[in-house]
Each structure stands twice: as C-alpha cells, then as structure tokens.
Amino acid sequence: MRKDKLSNIAFYIAVAVFIVIIVFPFYWQIITSFKPPEQLWNIPPEWWPSRFYLGSYISAFTKRPFLTYLKNSAIVAISTTALAVFVTSFAGYALARLHFKGKNVILALALSVSMFPGIAIVSPLFLMMKQWNLLNSYLGLILTYTTITIPLSMWNLTTFFRTIPADMEEAAKIDGASPFYTFVKIILPLAAPGIFTTAILVFIAAWNEFLFSLTFNTKDALRTVPVGIAMFPGEYMLPWGDISAASVVVVLPLIVMVLLFQRRIISGLTAGAVKG
C-alpha cells in the first residue's frame, strides 16, 4: 500500500513538472509583457514583475491599429474555416464512401500539394492574385488559406467518415434514400465532432499564417495579426515589452478557444485519427 502511495505521488510530481515545462514559455511571455521597461533587461532575468506595468499593452493597442488586425484575422480565419470545411466535407464523404475511379489519385494529389514548400509558390500566386484583382482583399487570403488547408482537412475528414459505422447508411439505402440524402441527413450529423475538430485545425492554421499575408495584403487596414506583430520592432531596436504584450493578445483568443472546446477537439481527434 505504501509503495502504491509513493508511486502515486511520484506520478503526480512527474505530471506537474511536465505541465510546468509546457506552460513555462507562455508564462514567461506574460511576465515579460507586464515588466516595466527598467526591469526588462536585468541580468539575471527576474521571475516576477517589480510592478505591474500596463504600458506595453497600452502601446500595443495605441501604436498600431491592433483591433483592426484582430478583426481582419477573425474575418479571414472564420471564412476560411467555413469554406474549407464546407468544401472538404463533401469531398471527404465522396472519397470515403462513394465508389468512383481515381479516388487514390485525388488523395495523392491533395497530399502532394501539401508537400510543396509554401515559399516556392508565393510569387506565382501573387501574380495570379494581382490578375484577379484580389490583392489587398480578404478574399485573396481566404482562397489561398482554404487551398493550403484542404489537404489536411480532406485527409482528416475522409478518415473520419470511414469510421462512421456503415449500418445506418445501409439502412437508409435500403429504404430508398439517395446517397446524397443519406449524406446530408444521416452522415453529417454523425460526423459533427470530426468536422468540428477539422474546423479548429483549419482556423488555427489560417489565424497563424504569415508569409502570404505579408505579401498579399500590404495595406494596414487589411493586415492580419501575425504580420501586425512584425510591425513592432524598430529598424535597430526591439521594444520587447510591446512585442510580448501583442503576442499575449494574439495568443489569448486561441487559448480561450482551445480551453473552451478542449473536449470537442479531443473527441474529434479521437474519432478522426483512428484509422489510417
């Protein structure tokens, strides 16, 4: 019994250490964002702000139109998520359940698109966006992000649809329902957790993207948050407090979202990644 208790305690200590390691960098970021300027560059670094200084947050919001960046990021990320999930849930279902030729080719194509280094397609894409008059618009980014997230979400949803038991569909089919009807009325509701997870993956990818956003949207009124953060340092100087504050502001919505939907994300992943 004593041994059990001891190993129990050891286990909890191990878990605690693990959580500390995981959360520490973020803790450090928050601490830095509250440090007054005179404390920022102390050696050795101090683990707690000498006083809670809000100046970094104030300048994060007043020196740059940070609210506009947040709004832009939200619009782009939400639209991307909606479009990508819409498009790939159709495709995913067809690839998982319907019988037609070339399915493997399509999956392979999607996978190989996701293999191409993003930096290599920036400049041809810029040309296209220019021709279509999509520079400095939300839509240009939304279309690009949708495309680059399609492979992951298509694979994810395809594997997810495969895990849904075939019985219900079979029953519907015997009742004379068309495959499409079956899809909308029976499969989609069952797939909600998987779709939700995919949506979150897409959202985070779109929220965090930097390179395309920097290149396509050069007007301040249309910039997204990751590029906005790159706007803080000066030519030769780094206002580290402002950068930390801005980063905390960007990361906070993500963390809140992740914590709120934690159960959903995990149950979605659980169902989605089961079968290769």
Binding site: I22, V23, P25, W207, N208, I229, V251, L254, I255, V258
Partner: peptide, 8 residues
C-alpha cells in the same frame, strides 16, 4: 497551448 501559438 503550445500547439495553438503561432510559430513566429
């Protein structure tokens, strides 16, 4: 948490 933070 770490997974949700932008790489940059």
């Amino acid at each position: 948490v770490p997974w949700a933070i932008p790489t940059t």
